[in-house]
Amino acid sequence: MESLLRWSIENSTGPGAQASTSSQPVGSGSSGSTAVTSVNAAPRQHLDPSIIDHILGKSDGQLMKEALTVAVDRNRSDDERIQALDDFEMLVEQIDNANNIAKLEMWSPLQDLLTASESSAEISTQVLWIIGTALQNNPKAQLAYMNLSPPALPTIVGFLNASQSSGQRSKAIYALSGLLKHNKKAVDDLDDGMWDVIKSAVSDSDIAVRRKVIFMLNALLIPTTILTEESSGDNVVHANSHESHLSSPSSVNTSEPTIAALESRGILEVIVDALVEPLPHGPDGENMEEDIELVERVIRFLHTYTVFCDRQLSKQENQKVLEYLNRPNGGSLGLTEEELGELQASLRCEQ
């Protein structure tokens, strides 16, 4: 519609155009009939492109280019560059704009900005935010990002290390979730070292990072059959962005490789301990209170693992969870009464 309107403006007759006609009698007699014999119009005046941009506004693609140009310009202040990246992130919330990152060859500049030693923590945090937004529920963008050279996955995982700021670690989980969710190939590409970094994040000093890690692992655990049954408007499959899903449904099955990693890397034990023996949190470990949101996410994770995936905890971990659930005034812990009953029944069956 915008292109049609732009064409219409460019090809409309200018305000100075005038039509003049000359006529002469047709036939004889006193009828006075006349016919137009010529029409002379003034030459069409094309509008300046800047005027058209002022009327219609710049295209999203142009706005993305301008924002990225500012973001990579080291002569600009950090505030200007961060604002440009924030503008870019809002644009790629639209899936077509997210896919245009590859078409406009912007992934490499963004990745270079993420890894540049000169980039401040705030700038790298904004880039991670862009990555997470562009990749979520967008397999076309996921594949484009994974095709970067050198591979981009280790870079994102690297931002989960304790040496990074809490903001960087938080946004790294957001970006990692966007890349891994419904993307079996990316999960398969996680090596033992990367899984160990994710395992460490379960005990991160920032409680928000702990919550996000558990939420991500639960999403990766959910079997494809459950995803299909519970699909909603947020997970609509579009041919223009989900071609790989349509051509290869198994490409979304992240459950099996996630289970294998959880069991082989000792991550399950750390998650259970996060529930029953939570570590203090805060910059100096000053907060000793149990975090209800984290508890609910761990309980949801355990329900997915034992009920949906039909897997078993070790006897020791199983007993720890049962004792926790049997505490007085435990409440529903984020599950429905039916789900809580399913979890308890599953744990008792394992004894």
Rank of each mutant, 00 (worst) to 15 (best):
L179D: 00
D60C: 06
A19F: 08
S108L: 13
R81C: 06
I214H: 08
A175S: 09
I131G: 08
S166E: 10
K320T: 03
P43I: 00
S31K: 15
R297I: 04
L91H: 02
I214P: 10
A175R: 00
E230K: 12
L221A: 07
E10W: 05
G330V: 04
L333R: 11
R211V: 08
S23P: 05
L179N: 04
D188T: 02
S177Q: 14
G193D: 06
G61F: 13
T21I: 14
A239C: 12
N235A: 09
A17N: 15
A345L: 04
N99A: 13
M194E: 11
L176W: 01
H242W: 01
A201G: 09
A345S: 12
H303A: 05
L343N: 07
E66W: 05
L180K: 05
A208D: 15
K185G: 09
I198Q: 02
G167L: 09
Q164N: 14
E229K: 15
L279K: 06
V270G: 02
A175D: 06
T21R: 12
H238E: 15
P280G: 03
A175P: 09
D196H: 08
S247G: 11
T258S: 03
R81I: 05
H238W: 14
G61I: 06
A274F: 08
Q94K: 15
S117P: 07
D87N: 15
R348F: 04
L325V: 01
E339N: 04
K185F: 08
Q316S: 12
D196N: 14
L135Y: 01
M90R: 10
S332K: 15
I226Y: 09
I51A: 11
E229Y: 04
E337S: 05
G32K: 03
V321R: 10
Q344D: 09
